[in-house]
């Protein structure tokens, strides 16, 4: 939705076009850079970019439900892990290409999102959030006890050889994650700028009033939980090839759960670019802190930033920017 400001001129209010060509072009440009420079830079930078893009997908997926509809999902790690373990299960059954594994992970996690939504969306506020947290715990318990995918001891995944025209498999993973991030952002933009986004915004602001205005609350929320789950699952699908050893603590990591919430909140939940900005800023900062201080410190910094933003700037960087622009206008 647009920024609101008192204005005496009645506007011809129109939603921007749902498809964003600039985002598509930017995404393809990033892919081109990755293809050009991927073979020339240290693999560390490719891994760094991969992690940031993974968080772009996660925070964008989270924001579809948490930001647009106002339903805070604490179960991110569960959906991410479903994606991971879908890939592992497929890897054990057959040599499935990564894009197919990502699609399968999206379907599985999306269906879990749909089921979770159907069972829990009559809950509101903190009760919904607790239910999603419980879902992650249930999923972790199931995985820990499912020996086919490694159970509690974890599973090793052999990273395949480089695929032409990529110089390395890490470069391939990076390009795949870039495309996935681009798709997630384009989907978020399409939702935000369509009647679906307007309906979700109405639900977020006042669910009773939204229903009284003809908004089919449950249907839209189910759509949001399904898309949210699907993107989170797809973000997790390449992870086994990225890390090569997956166990429940790494797949159901607290860092993933916290970051997926912190990044949209710090960036701003009202628009698609808030979660993207939050993921880039926070993801980059975390990696710098991991290298320069310690891997434990980065989560501490995220926690502090989250507290600061929630209390001082709850609308995130997007809100600060809009307020600043409003003052200048």
């Amino acid at each position: 939705m647009t920024a609101l400001s008192p204005s005496l001129s009645p506007p011809a209010r129109r939603l921007p076009k749902p498809f964003s060509w600039p985002v598509l072009v930017a995404g393809l440009a990033i892919v081109a850079v990755e293809m050009t420079l991927g073979a020339q830079v240290s693999e560390y930078y490719l891994l760094l970019a991969y992690i940031i893009l993974q968080y772009v997908v996660l925070s964008t997926g989270w924001n579809i439900l948490g930001g647009y509809a106002g339903y805070v999902n604490f179960g991110t790690a569960g959906f991410f892990a479903v994606g991971c373990y879908t890939t592992i299960a497929l890897e054990k059954l057959a040599a499935v290409p990564l894009p197919l594994a990502i699609l399968a992970a999206g379907v599985v996690a999306g269906l879990i999102g749909l089921g979770t939504g159907y069972l829990t969306l009559r809950l509101r506020g903190v009760f919904f959030s607790i239910a999603t947290l419980a879902l992650a715990v249930v999923l972790q318990t199931l995985i820990v006890n499912w020996s086919f995918v490694g159970g509690s001891r974890g599973a090793y995944v052999m990273r395949p050889d480089a695929i032409a025209p990529f110089a390395s498999y890490v470069q391939y993973l990076l390009v795949v994650m870039t495309v996935l991030a681009m798709v997630a952002v384009l989907a978020a933009i399409a939702i935000e700028r369509s009647w679906i986004g307007m309906g979700l915004a109405a639900i977020r602001d006042d669910e009773l009033a939204a229903e009284a205005s003809g908004v089919p609350g449950l249907r839209l929320k189910l759509l949001a939980t399904t898309l949210c789950g699907a993107f989170m699952g797809m973000a997790g699908a390449p992870f086994p090839y990225f890390i090569t050893y997956v166990d429940p603590p790494s797949a159901f990591s607290l860092a993933i759960a916290v970051n997926a919430i912190a990044m949209p909140l710090i960036g701003g939940t009202a628009t698609w670019w808030g979660p993207v900005l939050g993921a880039v800023l926070l993801g980059f900062t975390q990696q710098v802190l991991t290298v320069t201080i310690s891997s434990a410190a980065n989560l501490l910094i995220v926690g502090i930033l989250l507290v600061v933003f929630v209390t001082v700037a709850p609308t995130g960087v997007v809100g600060i920017t809009r307020a600043w622009r409003g003052r200048r206008a």
Binding site: M1, T2, L4, P10, P11, R13, M198, A201, A202, R204, D205, D206, L208, A209, A210, A270
Partner: peptide, 11 residues
Amino acid sequence: PRPFKKLSVIE
């Protein structure tokens, strides 16, 4: 009154 607070009047 229960307006959609983050939407404009016309929205």
